[in-house]
Amino acid sequence: MPKFLKRLHWLDILILVILAVFVAVIWVRIDGTLNYKWRWDRIPNYILRYSTKYETWVPNVLLQGFIATIRISIFASILALILGVILGIARCSTNLTVRMLARTYLEFLRNIPPIVVIFIFYFFLSEQLITALNIESWARGIARQENNAVWEFLFGDMRRFPSLVSGIIVLALFESAFVGEIVRAGIQSIPKGQHEAAKSIGMGRIDTLRYIVLPQALKKVTPPLANQFITLVKDSAIISLISVQELTFKTVELVASTRLIFEAWLTTAALYFVLCFSLSMLFRRLERKSDQR
């Protein structure tokens, strides 16, 4: 008998049995009542498919969406980190106006549901921004070029670039509010003595922040920031509502055209889980490593 089984109490076993029964009941309901016909064999083809045109394996919708989600998450995180650090610093400013503006921004984003924020941003700001900066025709220009491999690698299909940018910006804006609060907490956790020591060697406020406070604060808040990054990956599903071609959007499309409701959504759930769980394992390991120093 394996060691971990010996540690199980009879109550644990009871709970596990109840859970198993519960899962079985649901399974039977789906299988019998809904009369659902499982077609798992069709799923792999929607992840990778063999292209007869290029004679090689190419990513199909699900994997395309998955890659897009990773891209969006990375860019949005970088942007959110930059905005969040600025916001965190502004929240600790000695200037009342700066502090109030930062607080207003934060409270707006924190007290409006993300979906509403995203729609408002998309319909009001993003249209204006993209028209004003002429992003659309610029992106089309690149899409028509011969060697746009770097652009394609970074941003995927350049014809979809405008909606991708809106998605990244809105996600970053939304997450920056939370990043800002984390950074503020980090800055405020640095003891007063550090500020005083920096002042006493003649450092100004900006130098103190840059060389003394921020390096220490950011190191302290790395674990919650990493957590926020994982949250951002999950939140990125919301921007499917503004037609950004990421994993959730692609799944919706796939389900609409093939009726593989359960298979597609379960696969998508697994993809999100693998991504977020491996990130969280990675961060945990990094954290343990940095503690050892």
């Binding site: 020591a197 060697i201 003649g202 390096p215 220490q216």
Partner: peptide, 19 residues
């Protein structure tokens, strides 16, 4: 800040920069 450059201060709690 200019003035403080000429005045060194040693604190009870040292206040070295730990990073």
């Amino acid at each position: 800040p200019a003035l403080r450059q000429d005045i060194g201060m040693v604190f009870q709690q040292f206040n070295l920069f730990p990073h």
